[in-house]
């Protein structure tokens, strides 16, 4: 994939600013490789954690001879092991994401995923990216190191919006494929007839730290089309005849607020973090301002 195309995802100026950031986790996860993060697992690092009694087979290099001198008992020094962080980004690629201005919701979600992935890779986190289109059909397998950046961006560039949203199937498949707990960032508009609750419940299986970023276009929040309209659903083709009077538009705004508020409350009450974004809010502002505020980045 051409570098120029990849650069559209991550502009150099943005990269310079992203270098200062890292993904912040509020929990300690068990990693599979030694990484740059403290682990609950005791292992080999410089940071002392605890003692335990020596049992045959233990590495004798970690015996604390000072304790033995005082108590005449053998104790092993335990150190906090530094592990890698599993950082998953799920991008909704359903047809409903292909709307919005100045960029589509999908474009916005992809840029955001690219930026988050970059931050993760740069901090030696294990970054994985999946799409959510009906069910997970492709993914960027979790990998570490900045060397994986091009691959990750290339994967993101292959994604195309289309088909009908099916968050339930997408989330279930994701959970089955990614057994390592970690941070999950789901970027979607959450406009699914079957609801989002069933879908998000799947994340409880793995004890993920979940961030739900809801991306809506400004037109969706505040419609400008008035008069007699025949609205066609981009995913189902379903038609809805409306006469967009002031009263109805006012009611629509209320409905959007109720919908977003419902998602936020649902997430908050279940330990997930909800973040709302509109496509007119720049990715820079989103990452450097909003996501830092919410504690996903530091």
């Amino acid at each position: 994939m051409a570098t120029a195309e990849l650069k559209t995802l991550l502009e150099p100026e943005l990269l310079a600013r992203l270098d200062q950031l890292e993904v912040l986790t509020h929990r300690v996860f068990r990693g599979r490789q030694k990484g740059e993060r403290r682990s609950r697992k005791k292992g080999q690092s410089v940071e002392f954690a605890d003692y335990r009694e020596y049992v045959p087979g233990d590495d004798t290099r970690y015996l604390d001879w000072n304790i033995f001198g005082r108590l005449e008992r053998l104790y092993i020094k335990l150190f906090l092991e530094e592990e890698d962080l599993a950082f998953h980004v799920i991008v909704d690629t359903s047809a409903s994401m292909d709307f919005g201005s100045p960029v589509t919701k999908f474009e916005y979600a992809r840029k955001l995923a690219a930026a988050l992935g970059y931050i993760g890779l740069r901090n030696q986190d294990k970054v994985g990216v999946s799409d959510a289109k009906g069910r997970v059909v492709s993914r960027f397998r979790p990998a570490r190191g900045k060397a994986q950046l091009t691959k990750m961006l290339s994967y993101l560039m292959t994604l195309e919006p289309g088909e009908r949203t099916n968050l339930v199937e997408s989330c279930r498949d994701f959970v089955l494929q990614n057994t390592q707990a970690g941070i999950v960032v789901l970027i979607s508009d959450f406009l699914d007839d079957r609801g989002y609750e069933e879908a998000l419940k799947h994340f409880f299986m793995r004890n993920y730290e979940v961030y739900c970023i809801q991306v809506l276009s400004p037109e969706e929040r505040d419609p400008t089309q008035m008069g007699h309209l025949e609205l066609v659903d981009s995913e189902t083709g379903e038609r809805q005849e409306v006469t967009a009077s002031e009263a109805l538009v006012k009611q629509y705004r209320r409905t959007v607020e109720t919908f977003c508020g419902g998602l936020r409350d649902w997430c908050t009450s279940r330990g997930m973090t909800y973040l709302a974004a509109t496509t007119d809010l720049s990715v820079d502002q989103m990452l450097l301002g909003y996501l830092r505020q919410k504690g996903l980045l530091r």
Binding site: A95, S96, M97, D98, F99, K105, D189, L191, D192, D193, S217, E220, Q225, G227, H228, L229, E230, L231, V232, D233, S234, E235, T236, E238, R239, Q240, V242, L248, Q251, Y252, R254, T255, V256, F259
Partner: peptide, 14 residues
Amino acid sequence: RRVVIPSTLLWRRS
């Protein structure tokens, strides 16, 4: 006027 929108979910509810 026919207008294609991401989802009619919220309009239906409204």
